[in-house]
Design a protein around this nucleic acid. Structure first.
Lengths: 196, 196
DNA sequence: TGCAAAGCGGACCTACGGTCCGTATTGTTA
DNA sequence: TAACAATACGGACCGTAGGTCCGCTTTGCA
């Protein structure tokens, strides 16, 4: 695949749309209130341009999300401890989950929009698969652990966008409290493996 | 409020709609494919009737869901062990979660439709609040346990409709395997409390 | 400078949830 | 059982939002 590069104006518009969408999601109450037409208008482009650049709503959200998440994925893949690969599994599981939680706290609206979007369940998304595989692998490296696959799913469920949104938004729990609770819970899960 | 009883035809239609919706959801692939117009048509009534009877889509789904769930709620509230109130907490937590899981396995499409429906997060729903409160209370009765509130959320997240759908549907895991994994995981969580 | 190719934009289409209101059914009173 | 309110019916209708189409413009290459 030669994948020839896009024209200059196309690239520019892509960036503009990207920025506009980002801003709209950041400054909204309910992500569903931000329509594709809104985004196009805010970016100063036509709807056609928007849809050509990102395919559909889910595509746009995925792209936004991926770009935000990239630093964290880098850090996990090849960064220094505690996120990087050199970290002992237990500690790394905690770090990865904490990073995920923090990310979702920092990008609540966007993440919420993404997990809402479309009727496709979040579990089909390739980025979910990646995180799950990573988590499962780490869990299986912990001696005496069992059920890594299911445990990985549940740990990821513990940081799902709408739960995080509920705890931080409706319940008004402070960030540090949620982080602490997640850490406590995860620690418990990790320790229980070796005693069962 | 005296809440006068509805007319005979209204009551009859309510039942008909109810049954039609039930059947459509049971026999569909994606719950979003079942539109309100479909349900009205299948029930042989006009859309007006449908909306008058249930308010909106979420209302219909809630009603369906509640009616299906009623036996379990009865059993939890006032039934014999292991679901009923006389059961020791640890055991009851396991039983309640297992019952919830089985219910969702048996009513996958409907539950999925409900948790999808609307932009309102599942966490606002009063039935979620009820289960959460129940679970939290039980968890707090277990000596040495901490973080019952968050733990209750996570345990409920472990049986969320779309996860269950994914495990049973896409992954094709057999029912008993999922149940076993949930039981293992939950047991681990319950035991970890007393060692931390 | 000329000319494809790539891209633009917004009118347009479709589908779905939800409303409205003229008509039909119910049930009550005599 | 005739008459009349109250209640409910049903499907035409509406608004909205995602997504498409196509005539026009911009870009980039020779």
């Amino acid at each position: 695949m030669p994948e020839r590069k896009p024209r200059k104006d196309a690239a520019r518009n892509r960036e503009t749309i990207f920025a506009a969408a980002d801003a709209l999601f950041a400054g909204c109450e309910d992500p569903n209130d931000v329509t594709m037409a809104d985004i196009a208008a805010a970016a100063g482009v036509g709807k056609g341009t928007l849809f050509r650049a990102f395919g559909d709503r889910a595509g746009l959200l995925r792209t936004l999300y991926a770009s935000r998440l990239e630093p964290i994925e880098q850090a996990v893949e090849a960064g220094p401890p505690p996120l990087g690969p050199a970290t002992p599994p237990q500690q790394r599981v905690l770090a990865v989950l904490d990073a995920t939680l923090c990310f979702k706290l920092d990008n609540r609206r966007l993440t919420l929009a993404l997990e809402d979007s479309g009727s496709t369940s979040p579990y089909q998304a390739e980025h979910y698969q990646r995180w799950h595989r990573l988590l499962r692998t780490m869990l299986e490296q912990i001696p005496g652990s069992t059920g890594g696959d299911f445990t990985a799913h549940v740990l990821l469920a513990a940081v799902r966008a709408d739960l995080v949104e509920y705890l931080a938004g409706q319940e008004g729990l402070p960030r540090e409290r949620i982080r602490a609770q997640l850490a406590d819970f995860t620690t418990g899960v990790l320790n229980s493996g070796s005693s069962g």
